[in-house]
Design a binder for these strands. Structure first.
Lengths: 237, 237
DNA sequence: AAGTGGTCTAGACCACCCT
DNA sequence: GGGTGGTCTAGACCACTTT
């Protein structure tokens, strides 16, 4: 059984997505919603806060909650998105090629990023992502072995994320992301179809488990013309 | 007088920043915190949720709230950051040059982005940002005139944001952001010190007022080597 | 079994917007 | 003044982790 506030969130967000709620109009007031959904006001507010955080409504003190036109833009693809999820949205001519799958001693950079001792070993996974027959993305993953001892090359060819979440039942909770643009290395030029491009976009990801242990460092290196990042920022006053 | 939950949030986040809370240890439990701060549990939870959202702690059901090592990385500069704020963080050799300040009929692209009628006029502001004597950033802003009739060139040379928020008392509430990498235009080459760079990073911003009206469209065009974007993503399950 | 965080309730007071 | 969302409370039950 789903949470009450999540269920309310889903019902209202569905209505907004489908256009059943007119953009720029007001939602029923919180008091009305309590009777509509037969619940308490705090529960309604939890659902509305989620809607606001995810860009469906805008709450205004003294007035009400305004429905935002979500279909005006294509929808935010913010936060953590695995390649597999992404690929399914774009089209189906996608392929993952595992270039390297090995157990290594972390070099200084990785060791520091993952906060490891010298004894810890890490999986190093290098994968090329091909979209419509072009090699667009180079993914380099470093995963702490003690957390995922049973990783295999087959899993990497599919999706590491779904293995961690569905098979191992580990939940990935949050990540720090950094985006920079640099000149491609020899390796980038060898493995990707870079054509004449002078720059690549590097997304560095620091991935944590639910219990706040940092277990994965990922570099995703994109050909610049195919890169696109969408974010829905909210301001904390 | 500050909110209770905000005040608690500030006290705890300060302690974490200063290292007075040991990273990887547990915060006092929510029940203990209610007596420590003499408040109700829901108020404590509001403060803790803020801490969690901003990457200070990680909450774990059945265990407690783990303090995250925030000093391990430089701190997230996520969300909306004005050039002025940013410049103050980096160094002081920064300058803003207003290249264009005019009232124009919006072209089709801008008109569509801002959801305007043909009668609406917009301010077009083009500014070059110079850091350490290099022209690094080209900012193009389009602001709906009816919302900010009194804009002047002097204001643009300083900070449009602080004018809107401090002088006009308008609050900018949230924005959708899109980052792409493209080839520079003639204009980019003319106005920026692009040296040999073949790409520029374009950040498109859609800025809203508190009442959910979209009033500004901004393109910030950065030389790739000086661009850096940091985000602290949380996953919604 | 005891302690933790997650959800939910019913009620209160406040700041703000509109008419 | 009546309606709106924002904050705060005291208490309840639940799911989960640890001992």
């Amino acid at each position: 059984m789903e949470n009450k506030y999540l269920s309310i969130y889903n019902q209202i967000s569905d209505q907004i997505k489908k256009g059943e709620m007119e953009p720029d109009t007001l939602l029923p007031s919180e008091n009305e919603l309590t009777t509509l959904y037969d619940t308490s006001r705090e529960t309604i507010r939890k659902a509305l806060n989620l809607l606001s955080q995810n860009g469906f409504i805008q709450k205004v003190r003294g007035k009400g909650s305004i429905v935002i036109d979500v279909n005006k833009f294509d929808f935010p693809v913010s936060g953590l998105v695995s390649f597999k999820e992404l690929a399914q949205k774009i089209d189906n001519k996608v392929r993952t090629i595992v270039k390297e799958f090995s157990l290594v001693k972390p070099d200084e950079h990785v060791k520091q990023q993952l906060n490891l001792t010298s004894k810890d070993l890490v999986w190093k996974v290098v994968r090329v992502r091909e979209i419509s027959d072009e090699k667009i993305i180079l993914d380099k993953d470093y995963l702490v072995k003690k957390y995922v001892p049973g990783l295999t090359e087959e899993i990497c060819a599919d999706s590491i994320y779904s293995y961690l979440e569905n098979d191992l039942n580990l939940t990935i909770s949050f990540a720090k992301k950094e985006i920079i643009v640099i000149e491609p290395t020899e390796e980038d030029r060898n493995l990707l179809d870079l054509e004449g491009f002078q720059n690549i976009v590097v997304i560095k990801n620091y991935v944590y488990f639910d219990d706040a242990s940092l277990f994965q460092y990922t570099e995703s290196r994109h050909r610049p013309d195919k890169f696109r990042f969408v974010d829905f920022a909210r301001r904390n006053h």
